[in-house]
């Protein structure tokens, strides 16, 4: 039987899916034990037990000076920046995408502009953003918006243009104005794509967020990682990295669930 036709059964599929995770965990444990055997003071690969210990402490113990549990505080600050950045970018790209896709006049004006803007490397703008918007929340949110909105806009405008011409004509013969076509024909059909774009943009948004927090911040997950790096606190860094990964996964999962619930018509033909 050809390899391309060989499909794993249910149990095997689960085992295969778990395999890489187990392999990485195993490699880490072995590496950690080898290093600690040579030097018990080694901080590079803390033992799994130490990690668990640190995890419990970071999730539950308040910092003495401020009385706050730093991890939750950092999480709140970072999620606020991330979600407002991606949310604003999504709204902006939705409006611009509809306008560019639907209105030939605006397409002429805006599409090249957006294409050029999307070529600007956002991180290179970071110093400018800090100068203009200060070191507070605004500059970080703006960085995420600048970093994600142009690509989302171009994609959405393209999706609008891909809506079959027949539907747009049909709507006109039913008396729909440009506004009604935008609101009732085009918008509902590109919303699923907007959710997909947000899911894709979240990865980039995390990148910009952590970069901005590393450079200038007083709180946030990225800030904390770069702060404790000075003390070589690998255990805390690893816990934070795992936590960020989990958050990213949960956000993606939530958006996917939302999309499935909200857009039943997409699956009607399946």
């Amino acid at each position: 039987m050809r390899l391309i036709n060989r499909k794993p059964g249910r149990v095997l599929a689960i085992v295969l899916a778990a395999l890489p995770f187990v392999a990485v965990a195993l490699a880490y444990t072995i590496g950690s034990e080898m290093r600690l055997a040579v030097n018990p003071q080694d901080r590079l690969l803390p033992a799994p037990a130490t990690l668990l210990d640190t995890a419990i402490r970071t999730f539950t113990e308040a910092e003495r000076r401020s009385g706050r549990i730093l991890l939750w505080h950092d999480t709140g600050a970072s999620l606020f920046r991330l979600l407002s950045g991606v949310g604003i970018a999504a709204l902006l790209s939705l409006v611009l995408g509809l306008v560019i896709g639907l209105l030939p006049v605006m397409r002429g004006t805006l599409s090249n502009f957006v294409a050029v803007i999307s070529m600007v490397p956002p991180l290179a703008l970071l110093p400018i953003l800090f100068i203009f918007f200060g070191l507070g929340e605004l500059s970080k949110v703006v960085l995420i918006v600048i970093g994600t909105a142009p690509v989302m806009t171009r994609d959405l405008a393209q999706r609008v243009l891909e809506i079959p011409r027949e539907q747009i004509i049909k709507a006109q013969t039913l008396g729909a104005s440009s506004l009604v076509i935008a609101l009732r024909v085009v918008l509902p059909q590109v919303l699923p794509r907007l959710i997909i774009n947000m899911r894709l943009s979240l990865g980039t948004a995390w990148l910009f967020l952590i970069a901005a927090e590393a450079v200038a911040s007083e709180t946030g997950l990225g800030y904390r990682i770069f702060l404790v790096r000075r003390f070589l606190a690998m255990d805390i860094i690893l816990i934070y990295v795992l936590w960020i990964t989990l958050l990213a996964f949960l956000l993606d999962w939530a958006l996917r669930a939302l999309s499935r619930r909200a857009f039943r018509w997409l699956e009607a033909g399946l």
């Binding site: 079959p164 027949e166 709507a171 008396g175 609101l183 009732r184």
Partner: peptide, 24 residues
């Protein structure tokens, strides 16, 4: 592509009346 895929069968017929209004 003559009907709207995101509207139910009934709403596709209703659209022939509602699309002519200001907000659709």
């Amino acid at each position: 592509y003559s009907v709207f895929p995101h509207l139910s069968v009934r709403d596709n017929i209703v659209a022939a009346e509602s699309f002519g209004t200001r907000l659709g």
